[in-house]
Design a protein around this nucleic acid. Structure first.
Lengths: 214, 214
DNA sequence: GCCCCATCTGGACGCTGACAAGTTGCCATC
DNA sequence: GATGGCAACTTGTCAGCGTCCAGATGGGGC
């Protein structure tokens, strides 16, 4: 079976084994399946089927279902880190940087629904996995440094850790309740603003609460 | 099999069928199991085993696994509604009322971890279930009326719906990320404040952002 | 006293994740 | 250039799962 039957996904390791680039293919298939059917509809065997390999192949690379899901969660944090860094780099105003960070966060959750569906499911993911921890912290770090800049500029005694937790919680909570909120609004012929706009608005409000107006 | 073998849980319907009060017993067993093993470790047959009935009994009352999980989610919103009403009733100051609401929310999520683990899992719950919708709105309504009072007192042009969504998102997000946050802090010998304190602090900050200081 | 029907049981089916044993094919070594 | 080792993958097996179905059970209305 030639390696070009399963072309490596962008940026992945070279295809050098029997199958090609199976770990990446499996991760992608898992993310697709999660996006389609949610965590409840996830199945290792369906992932294997979509990757065109036997049902036991994933175990060889990821140990078990939890291992594969953890790998997807790590990738979620990688996407998040990359998007956050791109969104906030070069933005001088810390408030503007935070607003863009919030928009980037929900954008990732919209563009990678499978990844983000699993990222915080501590019952299905090995939260003590070193890579999970490392990339979670790295994503958090981007937010943290933006808050630090805000503190330096506007409120030297700001509790940076707590403020960052507040921002993360708000935006994460928004991704959780936005769909139910829309469903409720639909029943009453109301509409809910786009999630990206809400994320920015929420963040500007939070900043006002944290360091005062102006 | 005498009905007193399975005493009815507090406030439930009288035991009048073969088994007694099976729907309530099953709901409670499901919530316990969810609290112990999370959504990923949930199993209809284990619930039936704990209730002392055959593996097919739950289907008769709840249709399928989704039906039982939906019933638990509805109960989560009922707890939430009751706790919210108790926490905010009789509190004149709307800011204080909101702070107590936030604390009540996370308290429910701590005291009923099984229920709250499933409440927003739209992949595992029938989110278009009428009861789910009704009780979700009812819980949201308590928050909404507290925000309305805040707007009347302090900011007549406040967007009440959006402000309520912001508060809910923040507190819900807090319940999602508090455990991971604690795990991260542990690795660095830091500590995270109790979730109830954070919920109150966050809410007071949000209020400042929404309607200004004072 | 009888029947009806909601309630619950036990068995069957296809699917699942995990494990064990065997097969394939690359690569280094002799 | 044959050989041995080893990672990658397959095949087979197992218990457990959710759901469907036919049948047993027992309380309430007639």
């Amino acid at each position: 079976m030639a390696s070009d039957t399963f072309p490596a996904v962008a940026g992945s390791a070279p295809a050098q084994y029997h199958h090609g680039d199976l770990p990446n293919v499996l991760r992608q298939a898992a993310a697709d399946l999660l996006a389609e059917r949610g965590v409840a509809g996830f199945s290792l065997r369906e992932v294997a089927r979509r990757a065109g390999v036997s049902h036991a192949a994933p175990a060889h690379h990821f140990g078990d279902a939890r291992g594969l899901l953890t790998a997807v969660a790590v990738e979620a944090f990688q996407y998040l880190t990359r998007a956050s860094e791109a969104a906030s780099s070069g933005i001088a105003d810390p408030v503007e940087a935070l607003a863009r960070l919030a928009r980037a966060y929900v954008t990732v959750s919209v563009e990678h629904p499978g990844h983000c569906a699993i990222a915080f499911r501590s019952d299905a993911v090995a939260v003590d996995d070193p890579a999970y921890h490392e990339w979670g912290q790295r994503a958090f770090g981007v937010l943290l440094s933006a808050i630090e800049r805000l503190g330096r500029d506007r409120a030297p005694d700001l509790d940076v850790e707590m403020a960052a937790a507040l921002c993360w919680a708000t935006v994460q909570g928004l991704t959780t309740i936005h769909a139910p909120l829309e469903a409720m609004a639909d029943r009453q012929d109301r509409t809910v603003p786009p999630i990206g706009d809400l994320a920015e608005d929420f963040t500007r409000l939070l900043v006002t609460g944290l360091v005062g107006p102006e």
